[in-house]
């Protein structure tokens, strides 16, 4: 880091410049700077919801686009998500306190027998970055664990991940069980993982296959909006 960078004093920037700088810092995975930026905006009487949506979520959207386009790769996205998490840790209790609107809640986990969680973690972080609530079940999840969590968490979305051709068929087992129990229509089911593709997602009865974390966010937003429209129609 050069001296010039150290000279940049966040608190001296006006709101507009600060938000742009925070998006840059998020892109560069600078956690301490993001935390500082969030605190400055809180001092300037921004609502937690505005800070979340106008600085962090928009900043992570840029990260998501560049990840999708092959400009950023997993290490950079993990750093950005780590910075985002720093900001969220400050905002989360305040968001609950102020009764800010929620986008939706997702239960996410890697399927039984699969211990790969890099992709799943990325999705969780990007979804959180987009303002969704995440309940992360970790790796190696049975259908009982998925369905139990969907109910106890009052979730809207189920996200299942698999990295192995030997574990991906388990997604169908979970979806079939939801159908049998008459609960399939209660949830949006998204699936992802390196060996999957759109055709597989359709064949097992998921709502969508999501190629990467950025696509997952876009798809979740779209399907949640559709769901709300159907409910109000």
């Amino acid at each position: 880091m050069s001296d010039e960078e150290d000279d940049l004093i966040l608190s001296e920037l006006n709101d507009e410049e600060l938000v742009l700088q925070m998006m840059d810092d998020l892109y560069d995975g600078m956690k301490a700077e993001i935390e500082e930026g969030v605190n400055i905006l809180l001092e300037r009487k921004w609502t937690p919801y505005d800070i979340l949506t106008k600085s962090l979520v928009e900043g992570m959207a840029i990260v998501g686009v560049d990840f999708r386009d092959g400009i950023l790769f997993v290490p950079e996205v993990l750093l950005a998500a780590g910075a985002m998490k720093g900001g969220m840790a400050i905002l989360k209790p305040l968001l609950i306190e102020t009764g800010a609107p929620r986008l939706g809640k997702m239960v996410i986990g890697t399927v039984k027998g699969d211990i790969h969680d890099i992709g799943k973690n990325l999705v969780g972080m990007m979804m959180e970055g987009a303002g969704f609530e995440i309940h992360d079940l970790g790796i190696n999840n049975s259908l009982e664990e998925y369905i139990g969590a969907l109910e106890s968490e009052g979730a809207d979305i189920l996200g299942m991940s698999a990295l192995l051709t030997t574990t991906m068929p388990y997604m169908k087992v979970v979806i079939d069980t939801l159908v049998e129990q008459g609960k399939r229509d209660d949830y949006i089911v998204l699936v992802g993982g390196a060996p999957l593709n759109e055709e597989f997602g359709k064949a097992i009865g998921a709502d969508a296959y999501c190629r990467d974390a950025a696509v997952t966010v876009e798809t979740a937003k779209e399907l949640m909006a559709k769901k709300h429209n159907q409910l109000s129609a």
Binding site: K112, G113, D114, T165, T166, T167, P169
Partner: peptide, 15 residues
């Protein structure tokens, strides 16, 4: 993996 799966390896088992 694919071959063992064809031999009856169950999803979730460690090959």
């Amino acid at each position: 993996g694919t071959t063992l799966f064809n031999m009856g390896l169950e999803a979730g088992e460690a090959p």
